[in-house]
């Protein structure tokens, strides 16, 4: 048993003792017919944001990030992310760095070839518009930002067939790590409310109205 596990089991024992003591005193008070004074009587089930677990801190140094072992000496010589991110444009999610903007603004120049620092990427500037059934704006896929980082064969033809109407893409597939989700939600910007409009960026035509569902069309009481 190492120090950490000892400390944890000690504190949990203390916590359990505290609960038992509290419950006992509660029972005694009920017998006395007095209003009990409890620490937390409000059910935790009814608090706000039950499933919203926001990180309390961001960009922690490797030794404090919970996956690196602080007992390993070399952990302490690894670079601190915040040192590396100095001067890079910020964003609201992921690493809290806007990687695409960083390249566009020339603040970052990652190598395209591992040996040749002057090799230039093969950039293709072609936007693909994908109409969306639902009422969210249509998707514009920009090849430019993607080819700054990736090569054609990274996506074609294994993930996306390079042909119009040949790819079935849905948000559920993306959230499960397929199609765009092979990278988005893992390395490139995550899939969350704040990033919807990065892809869903082309407003529907002015005369567009959401198609009525079949249940509405067949509704006998309409």
């Amino acid at each position: 048993m190492n120090k950490k596990t000892k400390a944890i089991s000690f504190s949990s024992a203390v916590l359990m003792a505290a609960f038992l003591w509290n419950a006992q005193s509660h029972a005694a008070e009920m017998g006395d017919n007095q209003a009990p004074l409890m620490v937390a009587d409000i059910s935790a089930a009814n608090t706000f944001n039950l499933n919203l677990k926001k990180p309390k801190s961001r960009n922690l140094p490797p030794a404090e990030d919970g996956i690196h072992d602080p007992e390993n000496e070399a952990t302490h010589s690894l670079q601190h992310p915040l040192d590396a991110y100095k001067g890079l444009p910020p964003s609201d999610n992921g690493n809290y760095v806007d990687w695409v903007k960083a390249i566009d603004e020339g603040k970052l120049r990652p190598r395209w070839d591992r040996f040749d620092p002057n090799a230039e990427p093969f950039v293709m500037d072609l936007d693909i518009v994908r109409p969306v059934k639902a009422s969210v704006p249509d998707v514009v896929f920009p090849h430019r930002q993607h080819t700054e980082w990736l090569y054609c064969s990274n996506c074609h033809p294994a993930i996306f067939v390079p042909q119009r109407l040949a790819n079935q893409i849905s948000m559920s597939a993306i959230l499960l790590g397929q199609k765009c989700g092979v990278c988005h939600g893992k390395v490139s910007f995550p899939v969350e409310t704040k990033t919807c409009r990065k892809c869903h960026s082309k407003p529907k035509p002015a005369d567009w109205e959401p198609p009525l569902s079949e249940a509405t069309l067949k509704n006998p009481w309409k």
Partner: peptide, 22 residues
């Protein structure tokens, strides 16, 4: 009890807060 609970909570392991994509 509050103080003890707070001390106990400090000993509870925290979820990892590593960098995105580690």
């Amino acid at each position: 009890i509050g103080v003890l609970a707070y001390m106990g909570a400090l000993g509870v392991p925290q979820p990892a807060q590593a960098e995105y994509a580690d």
